[in-house]
């Protein structure tokens, strides 16, 4: 008789414990099924990763300054990188072609840049320049490629403009 009771009680207790915990889960969230299953609104969680600026019209890349050396054989380009993410980003590589008047140059990133979460950082590019520059003719940037490191994931973007 005692053995029979024990055979019944032994597996029943863990089931009762598990059932009690499931009830506690719902009770802790005021019996709200969605909150019990998902905690916060999934959209809110995504907003924690994407900053509000990600859905605005703010450009990720903003040209700040273009400078030619005295001899006209080297060009420097300063960009402001606006991060659309609420996580730190490292710009590991950027390259672009720039045309000013009759001259063309190839720009490369001077050194890696760490962009804080949701923030901005200045990116400096340098490179050789050939031809006769003419600021009056305006400038155009093409073939902008960049490589970003986000949380250990490498993202290569071609034609980022």
């Amino acid at each position: 008789m005692g053995e029979r009771i024990l055979k019944f009680i032994l597996p029943t207790i863990p089931l009762i414990l598990l059932g009690a915990c499931v009830m506690a889960a719902f009770a802790a969230q005021d019996w709200d099924v969605q909150r019990t299953l998902f905690a916060d609104d999934p959209m809110k969680k995504m907003e924690q990763i994407l900053s509000p600026g990600a859905i605005s019209n703010r450009e990720t890349i903003e040209i700040v300054n273009i400078d030619l050396s005295d001899g006209g054989d080297e060009i420097a380009l300063d960009l402001m990188f606006h991060s659309p993410l609420n996580v730190p980003v490292t710009v590991t590589e950027i390259s672009a072609d720039i045309a000013i008047g009759d001259g063309v140059g190839t720009l490369r990133l001077v050194e890696k840049v760490n962009v804080p979460a949701g923030g901005s950082a200045m990116v400096n590019m340098r490179g050789p320049f050939n031809g006769t520059p003419s600021m009056a003719g305006g400038q155009s940037i093409s073939n902008l490629t960049m490589e970003l490191l986000i949380g250990g994931i490498t993202i290569g973007i071609e034609d980022a403009l």
Binding site: V22, A25, G151
Partner: peptide
């Protein structure tokens, strides 16, 4: 964690508590 944001469901956490208690109970038995 996705970029530091916790994605685990509260229900799942409580089920894990239940399993913890169940396993400790099994060990005591």
């Amino acid at each position: 964690l996705v970029f530091g944001v916790d994605m685990v469901s509260p229900l799942f956490r409580w089920i894990c508590v239940g399993l913890k208690l169940g396993v400790v109970y099994t060990g005591i038995v």
